[in-house]
Simulated assay, not measured.
Amino acid sequence: MAGDLDIIHTPDAAAPGGHYSQAVAYGGVVYVSGQLPVRANGEHSADQPFEVQASIALDNLIAILREAGLGPGDLLKVTVYVVDIEHWPAFDRLYAQYLGQHRPARAVVPVPVLHHGYLIEIDAVARNLQPRGLQPHNLREDP
């Protein structure tokens, strides 16, 4: 049914640490929850350098997009929260490597602190022109 939510979950990205989904698809759009630099196996990386943390968060984002049958070129809007705005140039370089020529709308927001002492969190919105069929591990909920 057109009004159903498609809950997206992949073991290739960090499991939600609270009462939320990795992503939800609805109405031709995929909404990806904030991705902290937690590895897919649950290992934390708050003690790692910024570039390592950013790579892990981006890897989680890309894995969730892939589970939805999408890729970086489907991103419409990305919001990046960084603890120190001085990390912005390093993030911008890494982000360009992950996205190539694709340039979705983006905001980089400096924040004083993130959960578990992380330095970065990324959330995103992507287009979903051809919604995937539900996989056995996905849930369907009526709004």
Rank of each mutant, 00 (worst) to 15 (best):
A68S: 12
A15M: 12
Y31C: 10
P136M: 12
V83E: 04
R93M: 09
H116F: 09
A96S: 08
A105G: 13
A90T: 15
G17S: 12
A124Y: 01
V32W: 00
A124I: 01
G42P: 03
G42K: 06
A90G: 08
Q101L: 13
V113I: 15
R66Y: 06
G28L: 02
E67Q: 10
Q35K: 06
V111N: 06
P37L: 07
F91E: 01
G42E: 14
V82H: 03
V113A: 14
Y118V: 03
I62S: 03
H87Q: 12
D92L: 12
V82L: 09
L139H: 15
A46I: 02
R66V: 06
H102L: 07
A23N: 03
E43D: 14
W88S: 13
S45C: 12
V82R: 00
L139G: 04
V30R: 02
R66F: 04
G18V: 04
G18C: 11
A54Q: 00
Q101R: 15
Q135Y: 09
I62A: 02
D12N: 11
L5W: 05
Y98T: 03
E86M: 13
V38T: 08
S33W: 00
P89Y: 04
H137K: 13
E141M: 09
G34D: 05
D4E: 15
L99I: 01
A2W: 05
L134M: 13
N138K: 10
V109W: 09
D142F: 10
A15V: 11
I64D: 00
E121V: 07
L36F: 15
G42C: 08
V24N: 01
A14M: 05
V82G: 02
D59I: 01
T79F: 06
D59G: 00
A63K: 04
G69L: 09
A2V: 08
P16I: 05
V108Q: 02
D74E: 12
N60T: 10
D123P: 05
A105K: 11
P16K: 12
D92E: 10
H116M: 09
R127P: 03
D12E: 14
R93F: 07
A15C: 07
P49E: 06
G133K: 09
S21Q: 11
G42V: 12
L70T: 03
V80F: 07
V113S: 14
V125P: 00
I8C: 01
H102N: 05
D6R: 02
V24Q: 00
D92Q: 14
H87A: 12
V83C: 09
G42L: 07
I8F: 00
E121G: 11
V38R: 02
L134T: 14
V32T: 05
A90F: 01
M1S: 15
A96R: 15
P131D: 11
E43C: 08
P16T: 13
V113P: 06
Q53H: 01
R103Y: 07
V80Y: 03
D4C: 10
Y81A: 07
A40T: 07
A126K: 01
G18W: 01
Y118W: 13
A96H: 07
